[in-house]
Design a protein around this nucleic acid. Sequence first.
DNA 1: CTGTTAGCGCTTTCAC
DNA 2: GTGAAAGCGCTAACAG
Lengths: 335, 335
Amino acid sequence: MSLQTVSRVINNEPNVRPEMKERVQASIDRLGYVPSIAAQRMSGSRSYLILAINDRERTIADWRERIGTDWVDQMLLGGMLTCAEHGYRMMVELVDTHNDHVERELSAMIAALQPDGVILTPPHSENPLITGLLAKRQISFARISSLEPGPGIRLTLDDDGSARKATEHLIGLGHTRIALIAGPEEYSLSGWRIDGWLRAMQDAGLATDGLCERGDFSFESGLKAARRLLDSPDRPTAIIASSDQMSLATLEVARDLELEIPRDLSLVSFDNTPIVKFTQPALTAVDQPIAETISRAVELLINQDKIAMPTEPINVEGSLVERASTGPVPAANGG
Amino acid sequence: MSLQTVSRVINNEPNVRPEMKERVQASIDRLGYVPSIAAQRMSGSRSYLILAINDRERTIADWRERIGTDWVDQMLLGGMLTCAEHGYRMMVELVDTHNDHVERELSAMIAALQPDGVILTPPHSENPLITGLLAKRQISFARISSLEPGPGIRLTLDDDGSARKATEHLIGLGHTRIALIAGPEEYSLSGWRIDGWLRAMQDAGLATDGLCERGDFSFESGLKAARRLLDSPDRPTAIIASSDQMSLATLEVARDLELEIPRDLSLVSFDNTPIVKFTQPALTAVDQPIAETISRAVELLINQDKIAMPTEPINVEGSLVERASTGPVPAANGG
DNA sequence: CTGTTAGCGCTTTCAC
DNA sequence: GTGAAAGCGCTAACAG
């Protein structure tokens, strides 16, 4: 049998007689032969590598501060395992968004690694410099949390629907003044969460004026936003915060103001990182289906030439995990 | 200039005139040229890849349960950044320890990826099947938390010293009955922690009989161990638990027995994962220098032919982070 | 259906 | 100090 036939068997190509195939496979198994990825890549075939690119600054900060953000872990959980099922590998890389050399950095990464697919998380997924470069280089990629038209498979984590669910949960508890601490404008998902909240409120005929503040996902920004909301004489009885860190901050502001949660204030968080089970009280939170979304992205990227690529965005639904930070609206006792 | 000269400049080899070197470098920069790692690897040079291998079962379980274990993140923090400094990449891979095909699995991984170095974490670092295979394949590797003689660079996270520090901290607070919930026997580090605790106790002239229980790092096992220790009539006034999960379990058992921490019982944890800041009370914990240790391992692996490899194990010191779960020994009021 | 040939982009080896 | 030739392990393209 020739080298070529072996290659055909390895790659599960047609045009090999079953009997021959079996014979080759037997030898492969006996010798424990595994093709070198480098050589495969060299000869113009695939590299069996999917790159997951995250924002450098934010990721490193999260790792350093050890505040419980498990975004990368969830990406690995969904991505690595799905990659492994198809004989692929996933590699995590960090790229600076706010950097003059994004293009250079990305180009170098692609030239060196030659991945078969790339997964872009926000804010990279919304950076035209990055998506443009990838498109030009003919590398297929998935954009997480980006709905802008253009190349790349689009996947969203149902920010809109989750915000709506959170809001409706609070409305169901009798709240009418439900505030939102939104994320920064540079993330589209911040806007989608506002939309979800806004629509749920409007559908219930509730006012929203002065009930939306912005933060940047950080604890510090949450402190400011929560103070602005809670210092108001006509303060909300419930707050939805767009990140666990901002929820933590809200908890602290509430403590300062001697507001008991959930008696005086209900709180719903976004992210559902491990720490929210341990706060006092444990937080009701929106769970983002990160692993599932990345898994779907990997699946699509790997099978891009076997199945039709979706032209519409794929929305992966999250869920609301109810814990102790939400409760019925306080009785109006003129306090 | 020839292709060859370019290669020499890229690899910073001698025998290129400075003037020539400069000219080549200028072109490289202008074109944004980056060599293909696959091709480099093919031609017998390095792959610029360091593999970090973790236990599959435990890692996936941690990711799924979302209990705040940030071991992989800390590995990436130390490993990826140090790799990047040297133009290397780090890849995380999962391997089953308790598996008949460990060798096959590892062989395949190595054949496919051809890493320049491998980092083994426990329990793999103590698995002779794995270390033997790597040695035979002439792949240099680092063994984290393994002191057994044999091939590979050995690095430890000062388990012995950390246990001693924790014990001495408690002795300093007046405790005399200090118990230890140790880890499972299959991890050498469990034994080192016992050693550190034992020696600190003996140095202070304190008894240790019946004060050491075993767990397997899990919450469930912690529950059992803590009950055995605290149900005893002559119960300890302080416990050191070998993992955050076992500490959490101890907290729960103490609550069941209406023991207030730290008034009736002091508790020191191991790991210092993000959640311990949020427990009630926040836990005094041993911080494991994971990032630093992996960074050191990467540094050594990359420079293996430039500098002499250490023959003695390298011990990276951790620190004790004091929080609210440790306090003075309760006054003996015959309660 | 199977085998042969050429070439991927580098580095090694050897000539000059 | 530089350049030319050979080859790493595979697969695409083509021949049979």
